[in-house]
Design a protein around this nucleic acid. Structure first.
Length: 296
DNA sequence: TTCCAGGGGTAGA
DNA sequence: TCTACCCATGGA
């Protein structure tokens, strides 16, 4: 079964989805020989399917094809859900023309960003908050391990896949799992508490994370709302704002400091403030400008 | 052993 | 608003 979606041009699908490390976090994956994103996805009705998402350039736009495996037929509701999720994951709703025209003032940057900017995100904001918390104060290798264990231990399995592959667990599945399995098997370290607490808040209806996806709150207020989540500080809030399409502020982490130090410091020691000042001219696009400044 | 990685919470000033 | 200290985990 195939679901087709039209994406605007310019759109470099293969580069865009791999520009974000999320492609390496379960249940996402990259199929190199097909230039396709794969993802095990649990639908709202509880069924679990495998999505294989690829793109094809045609004259006026880009055609996204999502192949759905693991079910013999799809209801209209299921098709609509998959369409909406793919649309959100690929950020097909965002407008980047202002960003591209702004980049024209820096030829090196302009050459790099062509058709890029639509960084991969997860279908639910809950998943992206959990993943972001698992990037804090740890290495990327460990983040991948934490998310792989979380998905493998708590997510619903894809029917008849061998070895078993799993969807990202729902807030209820995480909340119901309890602390013990986090300590013995999933091992997020002190983030165990944050993940469980968030899952409980969401599953009990005390926190509506998905509503933030369509929020038109000003940047500062949205940031304030995100920082109310236990485990989310400035770095995580700016990362999550990027995921929501707000690029006003850079997420300062060891990676940012190391890149700016290498490229601009010339042996001097720079404070975070000094480093951020290097990007101050880029208005509401600072995060993306830094992102592509630091990427190849 | 010690350090620290794509930081954040908390207490105290 | 700023600083010092603590935090689980695992690789270097």
């Amino acid at each position: 079964m195939n679901i087709e979606i039209v994406a605007p041009k310019p759109y470099d699908f293969a580069a865009s989805v791999r520009d974000h490390g999320w492609i390496a976090l379960a249940p996402f994956g990259w199929i190199a020989d097909q230039n396709a994103v794969q993802r095990v996805e649990r639908l709202n009705d509880g069924s679990v399917v495998l999505l294989i998402i690829a793109a094809q350039e045609i004259p006026d736009h880009v055609r996204i094809a999502a192949q759905v495996e693991g079910t013999s037929r799809l209801s209209a509701t299921q098709r609509r859900e998959i369409e909406q999720k793919v649309h959100w994951m690929l950020k097909l709703d965002e407008e980047f023309s202002e960003f591209y025209s702004l980049c024209a003032r820096d030829p090196e940057l302009a050459a790099k960003v062509k058709g890029r900017g639509r960084l991969l995100r997860s279908p639910t904001f809950f998943e992206d908050v959990i993943k972001t918390i698992c990037t804090c104060n740890t290495t990327w290798t460990q983040t991948k391990g934490m998310i792989a264990r979380l998905v493998e231990r708590l997510g619903d399995p894809l029917p008849s896949s061998d070895p078993a592959r799993h969807a990202f667990p729902t807030p209820v599945q995480i909340a119901d799992a309890g602390e013990k399995i986090f300590e013995t098997d999933i091992r997020l370290g002190y983030r165990n508490t944050y993940a469980l607490r968030l899952a409980r808040e969401v599953s009990e209806g005390q926190r509506n994370l998905e509503a933030l996806k369509s929020s038109d709150l000003p940047f500062k207020e949205l940031k304030k709302a995100l920082k109310q989540i236990m485990g989310v500080g400035d770095y995580a809030a700016h990362t999550l704002l990027m995921i929501l399409g707000r690029y006003d502020e850079i997420a300062v982490d060891s990676e940012f400091r190391s890149f700016v130090g290498r490229k601009y410091a010339n042996g001097k020691t720079l404070t975070d403030k000094d480093m951020l000042a290097l990007y101050s001219d880029w208005g509401r696009w600072k995060y993306l400008v830094y992102w592509f400044d630091s990427s190849s």
